[in-house]
Design a binder for these strands. Structure first.
Lengths: 202, 202
DNA sequence: GTCTATATCCAGATAGAC
DNA sequence: GTCTATCTGGATATAGAC
């Protein structure tokens, strides 16, 4: 009995998801160039040729994932911005959440790592660069906004909010990179240490 | 008139230096796999084939540079450890110096960036991994030692010194990556912000 | 929708002339 | 010591069978 169109669509969706998961896994660990199409196909459990029924090229998968990844980070940032609470509560919440995702090596941490790696390489295809240029700055802006609000409140230290925001993300990215690659990474620092950089003493 | 052996050696040294500089430049920006032998040769101003009179493979250049780079960082760390002064003076001095190298994009910053990129990829040849395993941890240990001494003095906050050291380097690496890749990176944060994480309030 | 087999291309590495 | 020309392997991408 022939498959219906809906069944086919389900199969396609499942395969596409496998490919994306496998690709994110490989790309986040080895980068664009050291990852072979074959690696992704194997990890997704499909033949190498089949991958080209889903994506026209290796690059295309990469661009797709970059876009997804940035969207997730942006969404989380917006959510943070729009929640109730003081700047300190928001920053502390963000730090706690992110450190935890790093600790348990969640998908979100994998994503961050992947994006960071992409950003930190200048050898990226133009399409990727385009997406990065459009979206990469947003999380930095949002944290800067939150910190600026905190300066109004009087809780956040003086200084250019964007510079403080850069320092915030540098901590996240630096820790995320460290803890996903080190063999015996030890324990994560307490979020309060990082938080203390941004707030006045009581 | 034929060249003497010394003259030849000088020429060889100069060419080798060109190759290493070119390779560090390319590798630090694009990584091992996205950098082609041809890129390095072009940048060094020599023919592609000539490169193989100096190094047996692309990997070999990479290993050589990783080793050099780690040695430089280790040397600087040891120098810091052995200087006179309190833990706070040492950490502040280190932060000030490193932030400045990032600002002026000095060789040292390029080095840090190169090493960080190597460490953050799991797709590295075994020879590279070996060098990294042997030497990468030393700067972390040294900063941990300094911070532990600071805890004895009573100036450094409580907590596992190695964890604090990890946070220290995460800041350096995160900032270094950011400021070498961003187009309009803005200004660097004040070293005192970072320093304040590690020391007790007065 | 998935697979195997194949064509194509490109980068790493070698050989030999100057 | 340096160059140009060439070989070779491996990865991307395509074609065609099931």
């Amino acid at each position: 009995m022939a498959r219906t169109e809906e069944q086919n669509e389900k199969i396609r969706d499942a395969t596409r998801t496998s490919i994306k998961n496998a690709a994110l896994d490989k790309f986040s660990m080895k980068g664009l160039y050291a990852t072979r199409i074959q690696d992704i196909a194997e990890s997704a459990g499909i033949a190498q040729g089949l991958l080209y029924h889903y994506y026209p090229s290796k690059e295309a998968i990469y661009v797709d994932l970059i876009d997804d990844g940035l969207e997730k980070i942006i969404e989380a940032s917006l959510c943070l911005r729009d929640m109730d609470g003081t700047a300190k509560e928001k920053i502390d919440f963000a730090l706690k959440s992110i450190l935890q995702t790093i600790q348990i090596s969640s998908n979100f941490a994998q994503n961050s790592r992947f994006i960071t790696q992409a950003v930190n390489s200048t050898a990226i295809p133009p399409e990727v660069q385009k997406v990065l240029d459009e979206k990469r700055d947003i999380p930095y802006q949002i944290i800067a906004e939150i910190l600026a609000a905190g300066q109004e409140e009087g809780s956040v230290v003086d200084g250019d909010p964007r510079t403080l925001s850069t320092l915030f993300w540098a901590n996240i990215n630096g820790l995320s990179a460290y803890f996903t690659t080190w063999k015996n990474p030890g324990e994560l620092p307490d979020y309060r240490l990082i938080s203390s950089m941004f707030f006045r003493r009581e």
